[in-house]
């Protein structure tokens, strides 16, 4: 598949993901994205670990801070956090409902899906191809997207170097209790971001000094095979169908109204079938 098609498949995946809270659709999307990861001969372990880590936040927020829903699972003591002038800022605890737990779980899958979709795009394209895809009238977008694609691997590298440096100065990044370890890991974020931003700035300097203005010729153009044209058509149609489904209300689901088994519309499976194209092409090429 060429870069434009990867871009379209990313647009389809993100549109599908953001248009619905229906857990059935979210789980089916997760299955498609996982199948894609496996088709690239990559392990699902990182996804599962990152997904679980990220899931903790929406689960915590929904379960302990959102006090909606009729089905009370249990009750814990309530703590009110107040801002200035005795204005309640948030209420922790109280009634813990099945609806809020369901919403937390849906949000967790939603975030994992978004991360997996962008990761799939990142793994399948190169900064060169994305830069070529950018409209010449938007030079800043080209530069930013090119730097952004380089950003993730360098952030991981920088994070590991800074973690090593801190451990070498006595910081307990791998030992101690979970609370202190998490605290110390969080402290790594600021220097990592700072280092990565400095790298990004140096790269931008290099891009500018090699005459980049957005207007450029293409030394190697991506070939458009017949299958690429078919894929583009399929993705464009699937995006249109997803938008229609959203406006027709066929993707609606809101657990706080009433916790019911999520309905499934056959039409809503069409975009997922389109999203399976990259899985099939990857299996075929490997």
């Amino acid at each position: 598949m060429n870069t434009l098609n990867w871009g379209l498949s990313l647009a389809l995946a993100t549109a599908y993901c953001t248009f619905t809270y229906n857990p059935a659709y979210q789980l089916l999307l997760l299955a498609v994205l996982s199948a894609y990861t496996l088709s690239k001969r990559q392990s699902l372990r990182t996804y599962i670990k990152t997904g679980l880590l990220v899931s903790a936040v929406p689960l915590f927020v929904n379960v302990f801070l959102i006090h909606q829903g009729k089905t009370v699972l249990f009750t814990i003591p309530k703590t009110v956090v107040v801002a200035g002038f005795n204005v309640p800022l948030l209420i922790f605890g109280g009634k813990i409902t099945a609806e809020s737990a369901a919403m937390g779980a849906i949000m967790a899958v939603f975030i994992t899906n978004m991360m997996a979709a962008f990761q799939a795009f990142n793994n399948s394209t190169t900064p060169d191809a994305v830069l070529r895809l950018m409209p010449q009238s938007m030079p800043a977008a080209g530069m930013v997207s090119s730097i952004a694609l380089r950003f993730i691997p360098t952030v991981i590298r920088d994070y590991s170097s800074i973690r090593d440096a801190q451990a070498s100065r006595g910081v307990k990044v791998n030992t101690g209790n979970t609370h202190s370890r998490m605290g110390n890991q969080l402290k790594l974020i600021a220097p990592t971001v700072l280092t990565s931003l400095e790298r990004g700035f140096n790269l931008a300097e290099s891009i500018a000094s090699r005459g980049y203005t957005g207007k450029r010729t293409a030394y190697r153009k991506e070939e458009w095979m017949k299958t690429d044209k078919i894929c583009s058509g399929a993705f464009a149609a699937a995006i249109a169908i997803t938008c229609c489904l959203k406006y027709a209300g066929l993707m609606e689901y809101w657990p706080y109204d009433s916790l019911v088994i999520p309905p499934i519309s056959y039409a809503a499976l069409i975009p997922l079938i389109a999203l399976s194209i990259p899985v099939l092409t990857e299996y075929e090429s490997s």
């Binding site: 190169t126 060169d128 830069l131 790269l203 290099s206 005459g211 010729t217 190697r220």
Partner: peptide
Amino acid sequence: ENQIIMSKVEGEIAFGLENMML
């Protein structure tokens, strides 16, 4: 490390030349 923009060597050398509209 902070100057390489492209993923392939050939593309890296071509980058500046493409900007020159060659």
